[in-house]
């Protein structure tokens, strides 16, 4: 699976400063996502998870510093070149215009196709396989506005799988999903990310999913006057009652069970 020459860092931040509405999310920040690593971002409402993810994905400009995708600054890449390597799962979607499930999944092939080419049989095979994985293959010809919220979320995940990026950035992938799909889809996603020696960074609200699936975490603490803000590191060091209580401004209990640690709000 692994190619002989792999870049050591897939996505990196150098001296990144991001702020929104006068609030600084991070200041002179360094971050390195390496092949095979699964990262989580935790933080309360309005902590800036989405803004940070959008900046890392090049959907928004950083205040200072730069984001490197496979050692090249994002700003120097064309949108299309970026999208061949970096995929993003947005929180929202739009169904204002009609489209079928298959058409929508096939959009993931866009960055890999030439200007005038039509989807090949191979593209369709990739799309069908992804729809199969998320359990939507029977709905191919259905219009997207006839899907439930959870089904639409699964379709977005399928579109991202069809894009086959190296760097996967996901904004609350567990949104709208039932318990079964939360676990099984994240397992499949992470399986394919690791198979391709990719890396994944997702924002999550569920501490138990973070504990279960992430290797490393970013806790989005607000930046104080000394410039000290988000903390990052291995999940073992960060998922403590003390830190989580400070992050969410709410007491949180960590219970040790046979299935590993479990977090509940007190």
């Amino acid at each position: 699976m692994t190619q002989s020459i792999e870049p050591k860092t897939l996505l990196a931040c150098q001296d990144l400063t991001v702020s929104i509405g006068g609030k600084t999310l991070c200041q002179n920040w360094q971050l390195k996502l390496r092949p095979g690593e699964i990262w989580g971002i935790l933080g309360g409402n309005g902590a800036g998870k989405t803004t940070l993810l959008h900046t890392l994905a090049g959907l928004r400009e950083a205040d200072q510093g730069e984001v490197l995708l496979l050692d090249k600054p994002l700003q120097q890449l064309k949108n299309r070149q970026r999208a061949q390597q970096l995929g993003f799962l947005l929180q929202d979607d739009s169904t204002a215009f009609p489209a079928t499930v298959l058409e929508t999944a096939l959009q993931g092939r866009h960055p890999h196709m030439g200007l005038f080419s039509w989807e090949s049989a191979e593209d369709e095979t990739i799309a069908m396989a992804a729809l199969e994985q998320v359990g939507l293959s029977d709905y191919c010809q259905r219009n997207i506005d006839q899907l439930s919220g959870g089904e639409r979320q699964r379709l977005k995940i399928a579109t991202l799988m069809v894009q086959q990026p190296k760097v996967w950035l996901l904004d609350e992938p567990a949104n709208h999903l039932d318990l079964h799909h939360q676990v099984s889809l994240l397992e499949q996603l992470i399986g394919s990310v690791k198979d391709q020696s990719g890396t994944l960074l997702m924002s999550l609200h569920d501490l138990n999913l973070a504990q279960r699936f992430c290797d490393k975490l970013i806790l989005l603490f607000p930046t104080d006057e000394n410039g000290k803000g988000p903390e990052m590191g291995d999940k073992g060091e960060l998922l403590t009652e003390e830190k989580l209580q400070r992050l969410y401004q709410h007491p949180i209990r960590r219970l040790e069970t046979d299935a590993g640690p479990v977090f509940i709000p007190a």
Partner: peptide, 18 residues
């Protein structure tokens, strides 16, 4: 084809390389 991407929203289109 870029127009097809735009139907799903500006950000989605941008994320897909438009």
């Amino acid at each position: 084809r870029p127009l097809n991407m735009m139907l799903r929203g500006e950000l989605q289109a941008k994320a897909l390389g438009v």
